[in-house]
Design a protein around this nucleic acid. Sequence first.
DNA 1: CTAGAACTACACTAGTTTCC
DNA 2: GGAAACTAGTGTAGTTCTAG
Length: 380
Amino acid sequence: MDISSIVDEVSGNQVAIPGLEAAPPVVQSAVGARAFGEENRARLLRDYFPRGEDVDPALAWRDVYRLLLWIDRTTGLAHCYESDKCQPGRPWYARSLAFHVWVAGALGVDPGDLDKHIDLLFRNATADLALAAAKNRGRLLPAVAEQRKPYEGMGLPEPGEDPELESIITGSLEPFLLQKPPSELLRNLTERIQAHVSFENKRKNLVGEGFEDTVAALLRRIPSIAERHSIFVRPPLHHLPGFRTPRANSKTRQVDLALVDNVSTRRTLVSCKWSVRSDREEQFVSDFRDYDQLEEAGQDFEYVLITNEFDPARLAAACEVRRQNSPLFTAVVHVNPAGLYAAYRGPVPQRGRGIARALTHIDSGRLSGLDSWLTELGNR
DNA sequence: CTAGAACTACACTAGTTTCC
DNA sequence: GGAAACTAGTGTAGTTCTAG
């Protein structure tokens, strides 16, 4: 089937021009001990954005996906949902396919090349991490020798040894092997495989605050917003006007992101969550209650959720959750609802009550996109 | 009635930050 | 310098609900 026809169908107003954009290089550079730390993330973001260039609110979502979206290794497709539910044959595989094709088209790249154009933050950070790890390994070698010394000659396993994995490798390759590979080589191979797998587990440590940093970086590069607002990343609440310091023995409260309008002093507290779990929906309400209790100016403040969640039920729940007699969130913002459309509608008809609920919220504007939220913010 | 969707709850990994 | 505390998002399993 011709891919471009699907792209046209599901990508809405985004024009797909496969191969148009050159893949940005993954660069390695010197870094301190914390590859995923705030400082290194800030540096990676500075490197990513062209110096002195403004961000177009309508296209900001592209930067979010280029920086943060990743390929699920088990399916080879852009990640939009838990990997177990995305396995071939299961319902979310169809949605992942549709989303993958949509996002490639919307970014103007070939679906087969998408991996080279996204996940820049993590790929650069892990390159830095690998560098730091290589440095550390050599440093610890003398200590390792010292620790193992008393047990010399007892045939203790070497670090990194994984007999089961080794037997899988040798077992499946046996018909093609003239001889058993040297154990040194096998251990090296298993270590590399383990490192490869464990890299993926580190992603969650970057996505959380990395998403907050990315949104802040975008806000700062949109002149109509930046000129009018003070932008705070993970500020203690009492650093914002109109919020008091917590009592001596209670913890200081932080919020993911905050915007304060310099003219009207309107305050917007933002919760940035790449994805949402139902057991953390509770947290939205209790967070808000805490914020509300620290408010001392007697003024309303906005509470906004920015997310890339794809589960329709969770999105609908976020749109519908209430406190007292009004919606909890002033706005619920998805990185790009067109991606949701692509996944839910796709070439294969979708069923399910959650999807219908989520689509209602998109159509009504209750669930908005980063583009319209940023544009509206700039036009105030 | 049944398969799949939705929900719930907890486990897990691996990072940063804080405190001594 | 290192342990403990904290935080993030994801994995996963069991249960309940619901559309066809």
